[in-house]
Structure formats: structure tokens, C-alpha cells
Simulated assay, not measured.
Amino acid sequence: MTRKILIIDDDIKLIHLLKEYLEENNFRVSHALEGDHAVDEIKANAPDLIILDIMLPGKDGLEVLKDIRKAHSLPVIMLTAKGDDTDKIIGLELGADDYLPKPFNPRELLARIKAILRRQDLLTTQDSCEDLLIRCHNMILNRAAHTIEVDKKVVDLSTTEFNILEVLMKSPNTVLSRDQIMNLAQGRDFMVFDRSIDIHISRLRAKIETAPGSPKRIKTIWGTGYMFVDIP
């Protein structure tokens, strides 16, 4: 099956390079040069994944990401200026699934795309309906529908947030290291000083915890990682 990628970037040379490279690797690629009509482009092209540059004319990538997250849980990989940690952190806080600083090696981008899509595919290949649901008291995670219900209310999560929560809920009351979480959720190793896991956890807490500042479901185990506590 050919997967579809939407690139939102105003760098024509980069678009042509990525389009050629990704199409050689069996992807169908569409693109947009600005973010003002990103949601319309998504409706028109129905991509499986979005590559989004932060520096765009008109509405910038962070604003575009906000628009995307209002309507879609599609995985988004953000392209940021090299060394600009602020943009990376804000992008992750707004719901980006991954980021890559420019300039980058197209092979690394391809590896990250494949890791994210491979993880998505795993969610749709469960053997039975029982396997599709993870229940922890007042929370129900549905792999097939890609939804999480908390107190019978559906909570919107990005792809990576959902994957991380699934990893944690599958091993309740078990401490998982950041490396284990990153590997299971995104198919790649945790990098030292990479704050993405911590930011995704912070966003998850804001969405599923009654008091995010004093979390009871997702506990930080200092010096080790995180643990999902199966509480009433």
C-alpha cells in the first residue's frame, strides 16, 4: 500500500528533493507552500502523515499545527531551525509527534516516517476485539478507533501521545524508562537531553489527570522514567 505524505514548506528546492526521495521509497507526496490553507489541503489529499516547517510565510508552522490539531490526530513531523530548542518544545507542546532540525539527512526523515507509520499499523493488526481495548478503571483505550475515554468522555490525543499512553497502560504499575517508552511508542531510541518524552507526558497529564500538577495516573519515577498507576 502506498502511503501519502503532505509536505507544508515554502522551500521549493527542499520539496523537490524530498518528493523525489520519498517517491523512490514508495510514498505518494503532495505539498503546500504556505500554511493558510493547510486544513483544506489535508481534506483534499487525505495524507497519512504531515511534514510541517515552522518558518512559513503568512501563518507560521506553529499556528498551522494548532489548526491541524483542532480537527485531526494525524502524525506531524515538524522541521525546525537547527539549535532552536524553543520552537521544538513549543511544537511538541502543541501536539507535534516528532521534530527534525534543518539541515537534515533525508534518510533520517525517512526512518522517522517509517517508525511512526509502522507504530500506527500495529494498532490495526490486533487479533481480537478484546485485544483492541485496554481498560483501567474509568479509562478505556481503544486501539481500533484510536481513542481514549476518561470518565466516559473522549479525550483528543496526538498520535504520539496516544502511543505513549498505550505503552504505559499496557504495563500498569510498572516503571518504564524513557528509552523503553520512546522505543515502544515511536520505534526509535531516546536521545540524551531530548525533552520530547517529558513534554508529551506533560500534555497527557493535562488531558487525563484531574490535577495535572499532582498527577496520580502517570507518576514520575525520578532517575528512571514513568509509571502508569491503575487507580479507581
Rank of each mutant, 00 (worst) to 15 (best):
T2Q: 15
I5V: 15
I7F: 13
L14A: 15
H16V: 06
E23M: 15
E23C: 15
N26K: 15
F27K: 15
R28Y: 05
S30T: 08
E34C: 10
D36L: 09
D36P: 06
H37S: 03
H37G: 00
V39D: 03
I54K: 00
I54M: 06
M55D: 05
K59V: 01
D60N: 06
K70P: 08
L79C: 04
L79M: 09
A81E: 05
A81R: 12
D84K: 06
D84I: 03
K88I: 02
D97P: 14
D98Q: 04
P103T: 13
P106I: 02
L110C: 12
A115P: 14
R119F: 04
R119H: 04
D121R: 13
T125Y: 07
T125A: 10
D127Q: 11
N138A: 11
N142I: 08
A145F: 02
S158R: 00
T160V: 07
E161N: 12
L168K: 05
K170Q: 01
S171G: 03
D179F: 02
R188D: 01
V192F: 15
V192T: 09
F193S: 03
D194Q: 10
D194M: 12
I201N: 01
R203C: 11
R203S: 09
R203F: 02
L204V: 03
K207N: 03
E209T: 13
T210P: 06
A211P: 03
P215R: 05
M227V: 14
